[in-house]
Write a protein that binds this DNA or RNA. Structure first.
Lengths: 139, 139
DNA sequence: ATTCTCTGTTCTTTTTAAGAACATTATATA
DNA sequence: TATATAATGTTCTTAAAAAGAACAGAGAAT
């Protein structure tokens, strides 16, 4: 079990509150570099600091570290339309995926582009991606 | 800010589930003595271990560490999140994106993998994708 | 009274995150 | 576009804090 979502969430909420890393660090009385490390998944804050973060952002700790099913509402709309499809899927995985995308603007942009490519070109990308990820998985 | 409640809560939920310290320690794959230390407030578990505890007891992390009048807070989470995501984004773009993903299993699998990569590796992929897409856009 | 189980504490080691300094990237302004 | 400035990312070292093992004590059962 690893907190994959936490780095994204932290960055997301920090930016939502228009803080720079420095400003957030000051609020917590920690160094800025450690904030950067949290956001890049190199290190996890301790329980107390995590709690302070959730207070600053006015969210639950569970939400901050990304275990709360936030996208339930968004998804339920789609469930109406795509009932058969969604039931076949691992639903929670899809939830997490959407959540992830919502918080990752850059990826959103990429996917939006990808989406509008001709299918043939999409497949080209797919093949590339596959290779790249397989490579990375080795480590 | 100190987590006064946590030790009590931990002990309470452990006993409620009829675990000895040893049994709980085994579930978490830690030593028993550290469980004792948690319960006596000498030491705090790290974020990940705390999360595991909340899973074992089937409660939120906020409840476990004793900061949550759960229901109120959690609810406002949804509200906050709902507003921010839906209002801030280009809504239709997001919907189309989700739509697209739901229909594209292969992409889902890829993204699920991507999501669980370390941020650094994600960025490698990002750069890669960027180049590939830019190339394709020329045609 | 004795054994067994459960829990608490101490001491040492190991793990892990924190901070400072440096490097890079992004943004603004001329 | 070039340059300056701000913001972010990374590395290396140090410091902190928790983990584990071993020992100690308390309570229950026989």
């Amino acid at each position: 079990m690893v907190l994959y979502q936490f780095p994204h969430n932290l960055k997301h909420y920090r930016q939502k509150h228009q803080f720079t890393q420095q400003q957030l660090a000051d609020l917590l009385k920690v160094s800025r570099s450690v904030v950067a490390k949290w956001e890049n998944g190199h290190v996890l804050p301790d329980l107390l600091t995590a709690l302070k973060l959730s207070n600053i952002f006015q969210i639950t700790l569970d939400t901050l570290i990304g275990v709360a099913p936030e996208t339930t509402f968004v998804l339920s709309d789609y469930q109406a339309h795509y009932q058969e499809t969604i039931n076949n899927l691992d639903e929670s995985s899809l939830h997490q995926l959407i959540d992830f995308i919502i918080k990752n603007k850059h990826l959103q942009t990429q996917l939006d582009l990808y989406r509008t490519l001709p299918v043939k070109q999409q497949k080209t990308i797919d093949r590339f991606l596959q290779v790249a990820m397989d490579e990375l998985k080795k480590y």
